[in-house]
Computed example of a mutant assay.
Amino acid sequence: MLLRRRATLAATFAATLALPGLARAQGFPDRPVRIIVPFPPGGSNDIIARQLAEQMREGLGQPVVVENRAGAGGNVGADSVAKAAPDGHTLLLCPPGPLAINEHLFRTMPFAPARDFAPVALVASVPIVLMVTKGLAAQSVAELVALAKREPGKLAFGSSGNGSTNHLAGELFKTMAGLDMVHVPYRGAAPAMTDLVGGQIQLMFDNMPAALPQVRGGSVRGLAVAGSARAAAMPELPTVAEAGVPGFEAE
Score class of each variant (00 low, 15 high):
2 L>C: 06
3 L>H: 09
12 T>N: 10
14 A>R: 15
15 A>I: 09
17 L>I: 14
18 A>R: 13
19 L>S: 12
19 L>T: 15
23 A>M: 09
25 A>V: 07
27 G>N: 11
30 D>T: 07
34 R>C: 06
35 I>F: 06
36 I>H: 03
40 P>W: 00
50 R>A: 11
51 Q>N: 13
53 A>S: 12
53 A>E: 01
55 Q>W: 11
58 E>A: 14
62 Q>S: 02
66 V>S: 08
72 A>E: 11
77 G>V: 06
81 V>I: 07
83 K>G: 12
86 P>I: 01
89 H>E: 05
89 H>V: 00
92 L>H: 04
95 P>W: 03
96 P>C: 08
106 F>C: 01
107 R>N: 02
107 R>C: 02
112 A>E: 15
119 P>W: 01
122 L>C: 13
134 K>G: 02
136 L>A: 04
137 A>H: 15
139 Q>H: 14
139 Q>V: 11
140 S>Y: 06
144 L>T: 13
146 A>G: 05
149 K>L: 06
150 R>Y: 12
151 E>L: 14
151 E>V: 04
159 S>Q: 07
160 S>K: 00
163 G>L: 10
164 S>C: 07
170 G>H: 01
170 G>V: 03
171 E>K: 06
172 L>T: 12
173 F>L: 05
175 T>E: 14
181 M>N: 04
181 M>W: 01
183 H>D: 13
184 V>P: 09
186 Y>H: 05
186 Y>D: 09
193 M>D: 11
201 I>V: 14
204 M>G: 06
215 V>I: 03
218 G>P: 08
218 G>H: 12
220 V>H: 02
222 G>D: 08
225 V>Q: 05
225 V>W: 03
225 V>D: 03
229 A>F: 10
233 A>D: 13
233 A>L: 10
234 M>F: 12
238 P>W: 09
243 A>I: 04
244 G>V: 08
248 F>N: 01
249 E>A: 06
250 A>I: 01
